[in-house]
Design a protein around this nucleic acid. Structure first.
Length: 502
RNA sequence: GGUUCCGUGGCCGAGUGGCUAGGCAGAGGUCUGCAAAACCUUUUACAGCAGUUCGAAUCUGCUCGGAACCUCCA
């Protein structure tokens, strides 16, 4: 089997993946800020890195997957006016930030479950690691790369850039930005007067009186800066240098750049060796994001309750939609595209169902060597595609090429012994492995559907009887009325009937 | 303005020099009491211009168009 290659944003090249500690992988992914509901755009990185997680485990690595919850520090952005109003109320009437955080954390977890993402190994919160963050800031100050002003602490980007450029690690190494150019072109921003230079960023912010979330620190009451939590938590759980750091492309600058600077000062390393970034989901060619007012939340997506949605979409359709493209390409949302995914997934899933029912009736030798070899080739390539920077789109393409073979065997268009028993078995094992374990596609029919299944079979038998008597009025009525309920009967070649449900 | 990237057939999307993914939609056919599904066949491509090459969607340059980041953001 080929070796795993990943595209490293740091070098802008596809590189062979070699873990620092043989057999183990440390994976850190930037998680959500839980001050609002997760939307379709958030689904992308978590599905993307769920695939990375699953594939690394499949390759036999013991993976520690750390994905944080940002539940501190960012709340001043969430509508300051509303916050001021709330602070005048009694304690129980007030918006308690932790209540908000809890609500959206729960909703986020629900969404991840719907999308069938595996739980990370550790899901640390920013509020739970204030001490570690303060510790890191103290170290940065002690080393001379940060300064205190009015109870806030800022990172000295220019000094860092000057010193670390000598090591070949200038500020901007990840995003390709050149500090001198940036100084010339930086926009005017608020609250910049405390900084020595506009590119400096906050490690700790002094909390104004109305700010609800606040902690004691050596510099007074305040809250951590926007980037330090990831450095603190990745260091704590994965070490000063770990294997993979992931997140959305929009985090590349400044978030990951700042993380590199902080961690480099504290730990003497660029924190991760491989940086993996997923691209955005767009809608009408624009990134889906709060500031564009074009978000579709996950609850809306699954319920259809949003004006731009023509219908509800099953979470697995969303997952399939995401997997049909490479993670580094933009993915454009449209009802048409999602409906195409819905149909495609249904087709794949039905073939997979058919495959599970096939018994390897052929002999050891295939009577149609051409098809037999083609199956083996298509299945074998899937491993190479995954190893080639997680090309799920190609894996799915191969699966779809196998669909006509599977359906052909089932409908007897292809002779049962056309492919060998061992190839059938391989097909069954590998499709299960890929569909369920690696791509994580799982269309739950539900275990409590036995009664419904029995009921439908009563109707199927009635229809069979009617057809035997050539009472087509009755047989059509059963079929048509079930269809209006979303249950579609299909007459099979051998006189049996099957059904699918929407 | 700077940094990074993209422009593929009706739609979505793979694809880094020759072997022209895949899905959805469209067309024709097989099967069926009729359907549906399935199966078979099939049409429409590589933004434009110039260059490198025996040969380019794929490399280079220019033009046009679009996006992300530079500010919270997956």
């Amino acid at each position: 089997m080929s070796e795993l290659k990943v595209y490293n944003s740091l070098t802008r090249e596809k590189e062979v993946f070699t873990p620092i500690t043989p057999g183990h992988v440390g994976l850190y992914v930037c998680g959500p800020t839980v001050s609002g509901e997760s939307h379709l755009g958030h689904a992308r990185p978590y599905v993307t890195f769920d695939i990375v997680f699953r594939w690394l485990m499949h390759l036999g690595y013991k993976v520690r997957y750390v994905r944080n919850i940002t539940d501190a520090g960012h709340f001043e952005e969430e509508g300051r006016a509303a916050e001021d109003k709330i602070s005048k109320k009694a304690v129980l009437e007030k918006l308690e930030p932790m209540e908000l955080v809890q609500k959206y954390t729960n909703l986020y977890h629900w969404g991840m479950k719907q999308l069938n993402n595996l739980d990370p190994s550790i899901e640390p919160t920013a509020t739970g690691h204030i001490i570690e963050q303060i510790g890191m800031i103290e170290k940065i100050i002690a080393d001379g790369y940060a300064y205190v002003v009015n109870g806030s602490v800022y990172f000295d980007v220019e000094k860092y850039n000057k010193d670390y450029s000598k090591k070949g690690e200038p500020y901007g190494i990840l995003s390709g930005r050149v500090l001198d150019d940036m100084i010339a072109t930086t926009r005017e921003l608020d609250n910049q007067e405390e900084k020595r230079n506009t590119n400096d960023f906050a490690l700790w912010k002094n909390a104004p009186p109305e700010h609800i979330m606040r902690w004691h620190s050596p510099w007074g009451e305040g809250f951590p800066g926007w980037h330090i939590e990831c450095s603190a938590m990745s260091t704590k759980y994965l070490g000063g240098q770990f294997d993979i750091h992931g997140g959305g492309m929009d985090l590349l600058f400044p978030h990951h750049e700042c993380e590199i600077a902080q961690s480099n000062v504290c730990n003497g390393h660029i924190p991760a060796r491989y940086w993996i970034h997923n691209n955005m989901i767009t809608i009408n060619g624009r990134k889906m994001g709060k500031s564009y007012n074009n978000v579709i939340t996950l609850t809306q997506l699954f319920s259809g309750d949003n004006p731009v949605l023509q219908q509800a979409y099953h979470p697995m359709v969303i997952r399939f939609f995401i997997l049909q493209t490479h993670y580094r390409s933009t993915l454009d949302f449209s009802n048409e595209a999602l409906q195409a995914s819905e149909k495609g997934l249904k087709r794949l899933w039905e073939a997979y169902d058919n495959l599970k029912k096939l018994s390897p009736s052929g002999g050891n030798a295939a009577t149609n060597g051409e098809i037999d070899e083609r199956c083996i080739k298509l299945l074998g390539e899937m491993d190479d595609f995954m190893n080639d920077d997680f090309s799920t789109a190609k894996v799915l393409a191969n699966m779809f090429e196998l669909v006509p073979v599977i359906n052909g065997l089932k409908d007897k268009h292809i002779a049962a012994d056309a492919i060998s028993a061992s190839t059938i078995q391989l097909l069954q094992e590998k499709m299960k492995l890929y569909i369920e374990d690696i791509l994580g596609l799982n269309v739950q029919v539900g275990s409590d559907n036995n009664k419904l299944d029995g009921l439908i079979h009563v109707l199927i038998n009635m229809r069979k009887d009617a057809r035997a008597k050539k009472d087509y009025a009755t047989s059509d009525r059963i079929r048509n009325e079930l269809l209006t309920l979303g249950i579609q009967l299909k007459d099979e070649k051998d006189g049996n009937m099957s059904y699918t449900m929407n």
